[in-house]
Design a protein around this nucleic acid. Structure first.
Lengths: 102, 102
DNA sequence: TTTCTTGTTAGACCTTCATCAAACAAGCCG
DNA sequence: CGGCTTGTTTGATGAAGGTCTAACAAGAAA
């Protein structure tokens, strides 16, 4: 498993960020990451309702929207939010997601 | 043309608001409304790049997401942002849209 | 009334995208 | 080495939704 590149947040358009968050599965992923306060989770931790292939797809969308970063550890991919950077680029957006505990 | 109902903002999920704003045409509509500082525009004012049927569709999506309100005046439909209410429900969201003058 | 203007709706078309199974890649562990 | 774990990728499928034309609705204007 190779490491993935993730974008500079100043290159991420608002529409991309909004679109990334406008999906129930991705919203659920982000919320899970928010509840553990900036900690790391593996893809497997998100596979409650959909297949690992689907999760892998959504993780990619979130990564390309600048929301998350990943670190490879053995066969696992440790995923965490880019909290400070994302908040600096899109102030208040994550707070809206956190507020509604759906 | 009959008047449309628009939702109570407390009943609008975050995902609905994000999805409404995650489209280039709708983003452009909202930005036009933002530039005139809470004023009113007709559907025709948005028909630069797409047909009036398409605009009507997008206006409906925005209305059902609680972003806009409409007032009938003759054959025209005066559209304006629900600035205060939307800001109260989703603090900072419209500011993100306004910030990026795309 | 007839015509024009403005917007909505129905229907069709097509792109995007969410989803899955299956195959693959790559690191761990016996 | 061979099997196990974890993710990724590919290809197919189906649903959602953006777009248009054409038909319609309703007020304005002549």
């Amino acid at each position: 498993m190779k490491d993935h590149a993730y974008p500079d947040l100043k290159d991420v358009p608002v529409a991309t960020a909004l679109q990334a968050l406008a999906d129930p599965v991705r919203l659920s992923i982000v919320r899970k990451l928010l509840t553990i306060n900036g900690g790391e989770l593996t893809c497997g931790d998100f596979c409650d309702e959909v297949s690992k292939a689907t999760i892998s797809h959504h993780i990619r969308v979130l990564r390309e929207a600048g929301l998350i970063q990943q670190r490879t550890e053995g066969t696992k991919s440790m995923t965490s939010l880019r909290l400070k950077e994302f908040e600096a680029r899109f102030p208040g957006l994550l707070k809206l997601v956190r507020a509604e505990e759906g």
